[in-house]
Simulated assay, not measured.
Amino acid sequence: MSFNLDGKTAVITGGGGVLCRTMALALAAQGAKVAVLDLKEELARQVADEITAKGGKAIAVGCNVLEVESLRAAHWKVAEQLGPCDILINGAGGNHPKGTTSNTHLLPGDLEAAEGIKTFFDLDPEGIKFVFDLNFIGSLLPTQVFAKDMVGREGCSIINISSMNAFRPLTKIPAYSGAKAAISNFTQWLAVHFAKTGIRVNALAPGFFLTEQNRTLLTNADGSLTDRGNTILSHTPMSRFGTPDDLTGTLLWLCSDASAFVTGVVVPIDGGFSAFSGV
């Protein structure tokens, strides 16, 4: 079986981020033409330039995944320069402090606690809505725009980005955990809905990857682990954080004909975190 993607056009949203950058480079290394979409076009351009410097073909497109007109403009540019979309990676997503609690557990005295402690009862609905929109609507809209290219064609795939939070919700981040659970469910729904059209739909569920976005949550200024970082590693059977390259094997398998009979799966890439009961 080959992971070869020669002639395929791959579109990746959130492509300027650390994990999605690695995915974009991996797709290009297998011969795919890559459209790197990001809200910050300069970040997308850095990734596209890196691909072209290595002999691949890529374009950078500024795009807001929550605005249909922005997505349509991006689709037009991709179709004109690279051809119809064969592979869509819905990589845009993230969390927001307004959808996060201060502590892992609610204690009886917390309701009268000092100002600055945010409990479940203090969560901002607008912050939670932002997280759900960014992760769920930010995957639904690009799929509506780009998957039309795929209908009736062979070898087309959609890859959503779930999380091991969808298997085991993390403390403090109810909005993000709920949004990623929605992505897992949506992946299965889409897989069934598109099954007769030649489109396969699957998802990656990354565990803990040490990136700039979460570095301060997992490590101290001197590089040692925070309490939360220690808890995570103690519940990760492989005893390490993931690296961006840990995603690429599964990504290429799901995008290529090597997984031609696989659809509707959510694959944890988490060092065993979602499998471990804690004892």
Rank of each mutant, 00 (worst) to 15 (best):
D149A: 10
L5T: 14
T250G: 01
Q46Y: 12
H235D: 10
A258K: 07
Q30L: 05
Q30I: 10
I59A: 05
G56Q: 04
G249L: 15
A29F: 04
A79V: 10
T231D: 15
L19C: 12
A74D: 00
A181Q: 04
E80M: 01
G99C: 06
K8H: 11
A32H: 09
S177D: 12
D245Y: 11
T187L: 04
A195W: 11
G249Q: 10
T231A: 14
P268M: 11
P169C: 01
A175G: 13
D38P: 01
V34Y: 12
Y176I: 00
L141W: 14
C255H: 08
D257T: 10
K77R: 15
T187Y: 05
N185C: 08
V65M: 14
Q30H: 14
I117D: 02
A58L: 05
G229H: 08
L43P: 02
A79D: 02
T231C: 10
K180C: 02
A48V: 03
L107A: 10
Q30S: 12
G264A: 10
A175M: 09
N202K: 12
N230Q: 15
A44I: 06
N165W: 00
F130W: 15
I89S: 01
N202P: 09
E112G: 12
V47E: 05
Y176D: 14
I128V: 05
K54Y: 07
A181N: 13
F121Y: 15
C85R: 00
A181D: 03
L251F: 06
T216E: 11
L218N: 04
L39M: 01
F146M: 13
L37M: 03
N95R: 05
T263N: 10
S259D: 08
L25R: 09
G155C: 00
D124P: 02
N103K: 14
D245R: 13
K118N: 04
Y176N: 11
L39F: 00
V36R: 04
H235V: 01
F261C: 00
V18C: 08
E80C: 03
F121E: 06
D133Q: 14
E126F: 07
F186T: 02
G93C: 13
G31S: 00
L82A: 03
N135P: 14
P237W: 12
P244A: 06
P97W: 02
D110S: 09
N230C: 09
S163A: 04
G16F: 11
K54H: 07
P108H: 12
